[in-house]
């Protein structure tokens, strides 16, 4: 990481930073627990991804994003776009933590007539900015939002969460060129590199590494961190916030099933099956991890 623009370290600020990290870790725990509860409703699905990306969402929603939980359409809000519609389970978990949707509603996940469909849609869910499901759309819409906000003199920022699989799509790179060309420093892309996609490990499906070099070559300010290290994520987001002149991207290496050893150790699967009795074990393991 290059120039970190954090204030000089004092005993007081160290304490403040520890509190901040602890607050985010607590939020990440609740996001994971929310996700497990939802996963249990379906019995299978994208729980591995949700656990993996929970720390990223905890930092974004409790520490970075400007929003009003009671007014999801507030014009001055920062936009957080979920380009990966199948990660809806993760975002619903975060939206509940953020107070944008009621936690009691999570049990309707993926059920008939629920506001929380398995694949994210803007027309269904408060706080869901775009309709996902078809991958490779988020960054293009983010480009337009960022151009429009800048044009309107609105200082709100635009975040787009994408996956390593989405780096396969031409549309992602078309938007990457556009963001750089237009100097959209109000755009922050976050790439969840869990090294997996539908047909198996990303390295075997379609090689995308070296990912950081590619974004830099496309004119982006790029950082890469362990996406399950809250302190590292906070430092990185703080740095990106100060960056001016070009769009920023944070590459986050995440572990599928992170926080739940039972699922972390399981063979990596895009669509994971979890046995009925395993959900409670998973919740217990999650809790043990928090107290450690």
């Amino acid at each position: 990481m290059t120039s970190l623009s954090t204030p000089p370290v004092t005993a007081d600020s160290t304490r403040g930073q520890e509190d901040r990290i602890d607050r985010i870790r607590q939020a990440a725990y609740r996001i994971r627990r929310n996700a497990l509860d939802m996963g249990e409703v379906q019995g299978q699905g994208y729980i591995g991804q949700a656990l993996g990306v929970a720390d990223v969402l905890a930092v974004v929603y409790t520490d970075q994003l400007r929003y009003r939980p009671e007014d999801p359409h507030w014009p001055d809000r920062d936009r957080f776009l979920l380009s990966i519609g199948h990660y809806a389970i993760a975002l619903y978990a975060a939206l509940a933590e953020a107070g944008i949707i009621p936690a009691e509603e999570l049990e309707t996940y993926g059920s008939d007539d629920s506001r929380l469909p398995m694949s994210a849609m803007a027309s269904y869910t408060p706080g869901m900015e775009i309709s996902g499901g078809s991958l490779g759309h988020g960054l293009g819409v983010a480009t337009g939002m960022a151009l429009g906000l800048r044009h309107l003199g609105n200082p709100a920022r635009v975040f787009d969460l994408l996956s390593d699989g989405e780096l396969d799509e031409g549309s992602t790179w078309e938007a990457a060129l556009a963001c750089a060309h237009h100097g959209l420093d109000n755009v922050t892309a976050v790439v969840d590199v869990n090294a997996l996609q539908a047909d198996g490990p990303t390295a075997g499906v379609l090689r995308t590494e070296p990912v950081v070099d590619k974004w830099r070559a496309f004119g982006w300010h790029a950082l890469r961190v362990d996406g399950n290290d809250v302190a590292a994520l906070v430092d990185a987001f703080d740095e990106l916030r100060e960056h001016r002149g070009s769009p920023s991207v944070l590459i986050c290496d995440t572990r599928i099933g992170s926080g739940v050893p039972l699922l972390e150790g399981r063979e990596k699967a895009h669509f994971m099956r979890v046995e009925p009795h395993e959900w409670q074990i998973a919740r217990d393991q999650l809790e043990e991890g928090l107290s450690r």
Binding site: Q42, Q44, G45, T108, S111
Partner: peptide
């Protein structure tokens, strides 16, 4: 009582 779920591509 419990509503049906989407559960899956594999539907």
């Amino acid at each position: 009582r419990k509503k049906l779920t989407t559960s899956a591509m594999i539907a």
